[in-house]
Nucleic acid binder design. Structure first.
Lengths: 115, 115
DNA sequence: TACCGATACTCGGTAGTGCTAAGTACCAAG
DNA sequence: CTTGGTACTTAGCACTACCGAGTATCGGTA
């Protein structure tokens, strides 16, 4: 049984990456490092690459190969119009779910006060 | 490709149900109805039953069969100590993820202002 | 030259969870 | 006795994250 985090990231990680890409274009290795710095230390490297491939297949991002000074060429991803739509949809779904969960937490807090 | 909601519920639905059960004991059909009223209209009935079975197998809930006036006996679930621990862990994981996502949203909003 | 470490991406197989769809069972009302 | 609401079960599928191993490029070092 993997940890909660793993399961909770299902469905949110894609949105997280889309949000990162909406700020600026980036490549896989970079995104992975950024996530680690942001506190998501346990996200496997392979996971991000696989996710990026999926984003590309779904046509949400554009890709450009850029040579790197140290290592193989980078695949730089940038959000396109479709991706922006998808991101907007993600925020909408997120708001919906987050709002309802927060409501549950507040009624729940009355039972777990002090825990 | 199912909708965002489906994927986002993975990992959060268990917590949602645990939170509901922490307020009071309940049975599957009841929980399903409650979720529908709460706006989660698309949650499949079978999903909740399967989830409850998992909770039982993980030892997070206690079960009691209670005869119903109209239909087969109900399986009433109540949160036990283990379940309460798990719920606390869920809130902790949720806070972690939600906080980081909200941060992303705020930096993101600058790009999607007006969308 | 030969090796090592960091960079950068790929791929096959596994596990967990929600959905679909169909079925079982019980009871009351028409 | 058929219909509809209540209540639960089950088999098989889809999606996504993880694990582990592999490939490739380059700079530095002995």
């Amino acid at each position: 049984m993997p940890n909660q985090m793993t399961e909770m990231l299902k469905g949110t990680l894609e949105g997280i990456v889309l949000a990162i890409l909406s700020e600026r274009s980036a490549y896989g290795y970079e995104i992975t490092a950024e996530l680690r710095e942001a506190g998501f230390a346990d996200i496997a490297e392979g996971t991000i690459y696989a996710l990026l491939v999926r984003l590309e297949q779904k046509g949400l991002v554009d890709v450009e190969r850029v040579p790197s000074e140290k290592g193989p060429p980078r695949k730089v991803y940038s959000l396109n119009a479709s991706g922006r739509d998808q991101l907007a949809e993600f925020w909408s779904t997120w708001s919906f779910v987050a709002t309802r969960i927060e409501q549950l937490r507040h009624t729940d807090q009355q039972h777990t006060e002090g825990a």
